[in-house]
Design a protein around this nucleic acid. Structure first.
Lengths: 214, 214
DNA sequence: AGGTCATGTGACTTCATAGTCATATCGTAC
DNA sequence: GTACGATATGACTATGAAGTCACATGACCT
């Protein structure tokens, strides 16, 4: 958590710091990011940084929190439709929301993807609470689906939620990261929703029916 | 690729270098590994190292190649049974082979898992050829499955192969890495095959039938 | 013994990192 | 205006990384 000093800062200075940090973390892997570059970009003194944050990890954790919050907004819309859709339709909406989040916040999306690439050590430290928030979310969804008779009641909820989370990230990662060869910045805006939904629908079909011939 | 000098070295010296490197790469993420530590552990001079390899990347690539070769041996056994098993049984055997490889070569397995955590940049460079060897392998398997009428002919082979590869890694990673909190070395030998196959069978069921209630 | 080529060596250079700290500046209250 | 606490500053320290290079040691042939 940032210090009070940081929160007392004028809005625009806070933003300068966060923007610089987001830029840096979206450009490089965690270990390659540099506080030096961040303070330079933000035009604050090195010493100031250490008055705001205890170090790199502190800063990163905070940014992850911001991303999580922001992403939740995109998901919250869906939850209002929760009752009218079945599990698979809902899952589709979630992918769409994920896509839109990524489109609106390319840098944040890139940072989110980089989480997968952290040491397991660091991943645990950073994801302490929000860790399996995503997994918990899917567990609940799966439970509802089972209750509504949409989903095979024999499945292992936790394990399935885990797999879906993994696939979730894979597909989005594939779409955003593989497609743009390393943050070519503004190219991100050219992406089409339909193009991605082709993959999502294939993925959904796998999750729903499997690949066995009938 | 290592230099001729390296290959001309007496066997035990080559091994000392490779062992030290494998130890280092299995302990730390790529960027955290240190040539200094490797040469110290291998008891060679810094300068010697740079006569054998052009740098860290060169060494790492070579080790990945060794791992790939070694893993192929484990898979080759299966391919003899290729005709007598259906796709899903074959896939199950592949997981088993993966498990056995990991059990016999814990350090190599850990390094293989670390590949997932590389920058996309580096990942591409290192996986140039062997990159989608795994994916190609699954595509062929899927094709055979389709031809034998075991698999839905409507599926996108490439995309499905990609997803299976991802899940493949996820499950094994989950099993080996999450379970042992960061290479506690010899603990790896305590793992039970059955314990892991519980998860594999759940995963196979998802791939086969999906999760929709029937 | 002399010569030559391959190999070995580790101190050194260069670079960039994280983090510190004495000092300066600001801003508000009195 | 002065005093005091909060905030800002960037040169500085400490650390460790990758990679180099002038020289040393070996091994084998003539």
């Amino acid at each position: 958590m940032p210090s009070d000093t940081f929160f007392n800062l004028p809005q625009d200075k806070q933003e300068r710091v966060l923007d610089a940090a987001i830029k840096e973390f979206s450009r490089f892997s965690y270990h390659k990011t540099s506080i030096n570059r961040i303070v330079e970009e933000a035009e604050i003194a090195k010493g100031s940084f250490y008055q705001y944050f205890t170090g790199k990890k502190d800063l990163f954790k905070y940014i992850i929190e911001l991303i999580t919050e922001k992403k939740m907004v995109y998901l919250s819309h869906i939850m209002s439709e929760k009752e009218s859709l079945d599990f698979f339709e809902l899952l589709r909406e979630i992918y769409l929301a994920g896509f839109r989040f990524g489109k609106d916040n390319p840098r944040l999306q890139l940072i989110a993807f980089r989480i997968i690439n952290l040491d397991n050590q660091l991943k645990k430290e950073i994801m302490n609470r929000s860790k399996d928030r995503s997994e918990q979310f899917f567990i609940q969804l799966l439970k509802d689906g089972v209750n509504k008779g949409e989903i095979d009641s024999e499945i292992d909820l936790e394990f399935t939620a885990y797999l879906i989370t993994k696939l979730n990230m894979s597909v989005l990662e594939d779409y955003f990261v593989k497609r743009l060869q390393l943050d070519s910045e503004e190219d991100i805006l050219n992406l089409e929703e339909n193009e991605m939904m082709v993959f999502v629908d294939k993925l959904l079909s796998l999750i729903k029916h499997g690949i066995k011939s009938d």
